[in-house]
Simulated assay, not measured.
Amino acid sequence: MKRLAALTGSLLLALTISSCGAATGPVGTWGEGYNTDKQPYLELSLGSDKTAEYEQAGFLTGSDGCNRITGQWFLVQGKLSFSQLSGTQMACEGVDPWLMKAAGGEIDGDVLTVKDSAGLPVGTLDRRN
């Protein structure tokens, strides 16, 4: 009986430890540009309002490498969409403003494929955390 209890405890501990490191869902920082110049990134955080309409929802901040971006994000049936995006409009030499076209995205493992309003991919961002 003691062995069964010890085995059960060990399995629960192993599952807990392995699930702590696994990043799931859209929450986190995407892209290498966080705190660096001229690299795009998005940071998605959870909102405080809970609703049955969305699996998850929250706020986003980021940069295309020059201009700041803010807005909201929603996850519905596994589809990520961005809403009320706004950003600065500075002209920056050597920066590709593709992230300003973001309307949503798809997550595959640790890669976020950012899509425009037509659903076409405009770029990808790797999960940072």
Rank of each mutant, 00 (worst) to 15 (best):
P121D: 05
S81R: 11
C92R: 04
V122C: 10
V76F: 03
Q72S: 14
Q72Y: 15
P97A: 09
S81A: 15
Q72I: 15
Q72V: 15
I69G: 06
G105D: 01
C92D: 03
G87D: 12
L112V: 02
R127C: 10
S86R: 09
G123F: 00
G104N: 07
T88M: 04
S83W: 14
V76W: 13
G78C: 15
P121N: 06
G119F: 07
Q84K: 13
D116H: 02
D108C: 00
L99F: 01
I107L: 06
F82N: 11
D96Q: 07
S117K: 06
L99H: 00
V122A: 13
G87L: 08
C66E: 05
R127H: 13
A102W: 05
N67P: 04
G104A: 14
I69R: 05
W98D: 04
G71E: 07
G87P: 11
M100D: 04
L120Q: 14
S83C: 10
T70W: 15
F74A: 12
D126L: 15
S83N: 12
G123I: 00
L120E: 15
Q84T: 12
T88V: 07
R128N: 12
M100C: 08
G104K: 08
L120S: 14
D110E: 13
G105Q: 01
E93H: 14
M100R: 05
K115T: 07
T70V: 11
C66V: 01
G119K: 09
R128M: 02
P97D: 05
L80F: 11
L120P: 05
K79T: 12
A103G: 08
I107G: 01
T88C: 05
L120N: 14
G71R: 08
K101A: 10
F74R: 02
L125R: 00
R127N: 13
G71D: 07
V95Q: 00
G87K: 11
D110N: 13
G123S: 06
G119S: 08
I69W: 04
A102Y: 09
L80Y: 09
G87W: 09
D116Y: 02
L85E: 05
D110R: 10
T88F: 02
G105R: 01
